[in-house]
Nucleic acid binder design. Structure first.
Ligand code: FES
Ligand code: FES
Lengths: 155, 155
DNA sequence: CCTATATAGGACTAGTTTAGTACTAGATTG
DNA sequence: CAATCTAGTACTAAACTAGTCCTATATAGG
């Protein structure tokens, strides 16, 4: 179904919260309350995000989390990678591709290009847009350009 | 990991085979042999493809499968839909979206747009390209347009 | 009419993945 | 030194996937 995991979804929500309060340090408990998510789950996701360098943390009393860098520098692709590892649409696209029928089918290569194209598109979407902080409605320039197919359209 | 299921991968391979022999009727066994896949699995996938109207079948002795319509009229999006149902990147994008935090998060909406954009891109990719039958290398016009970002690039 | 060859459909099982929870350890403040 | 945080890991339950198997039905040909 070409879906992302719930964890990744949660991660986006939490990152959006953090992006909305760039100067404050938020604890896992606070974020859980704000997001209406279970505390242990939130904690798990945040730990993962920390490990992948998307958030920075402070230990101890009065500790908490904050974004490791400005929201504009965090992309959808990075979030996906952090939670689910580098994406590969099909098995054959993985690192050690050992597809037995690769020589004859040629399909793998085609999917890989789809893969790459989607990935690059996701790299153009930042947390600012995902969090809806941009002031203007979310806008995926590249993808929309693709969809319009060159037709000029205003607003 | 944003991946498609093996079944969908198999489906693409099988459809590519059928596309390569548009005038012949191929049995599940023949396709299995050509693709180096297990016969029961191939059969299962073909049945699914038939149910979703991507291939037509002939029963009985000397029966078999063929494409229901020209390869150029079968898109990657249709194949994905056939095997996995309409794609929804996140839970909230599903038919009965009952996300408890939808009002406050806004993230769901953003992902939905990503979802839609990817989907439309997949609709521009036909089986001709996936099967590598086009003569020229696979070309995803819309997606590449998106990636170039308006920069002119030759070949 | 009977048999061999195909597809159609569904049920079933094993395996893998995901989601969620719990527990232990370490850091910081006051 | 006690309270409040995060860090890391391990574990369990549930969901999904992949693959197989069984039964029914349709067709061609002897
Ligand atoms: S299915 Fe792996 S390369 Fe074609
Ligand atoms: S997570 Fe469902 S709408 Fe935000």
């Amino acid at each position: 179904m070409l879906r992302i995991s719930k964890m990744t979804d949660y991660a986006t929500v939490l990152l959006a919260r953090l992006a909305a309060a760039p100067d404050r340090q938020l604890t896992a408990t606070q974020l859980a309350a704000q997001s209406h998510l279970a505390a242990p789950t939130v904690s798990k996701v945040l730990k993962q995000l920390h490990r992948r360098g998307l958030v920075s943390s402070t230990l101890g009393l009065r500790g908490g989390y904050r974004l490791a860098r400005p929201a504009a520098e965090i992309t959808a692709a990075q979030i996906l990678d952090a939670l689910e590892g580098p994406m590969a649409l099909i098995e054959c696209a993985r690192a050690t591709h050992q597809c037995s029928i690769e020589s004859t089918c040629g399909v793998g290569r085609a999917w890989q290009r789809v893969n790459l194209a989607i990935r690059r598109s996701l790299q153009e979407i930042t947390l600012v847009e995902l969090a809806g902080l941009g002031g203007e409605p979310v806008r995926f320039a590249a993808l929309e350009r693709a969809l319009r197919g060159g037709r000029a359209e205003r607003t």
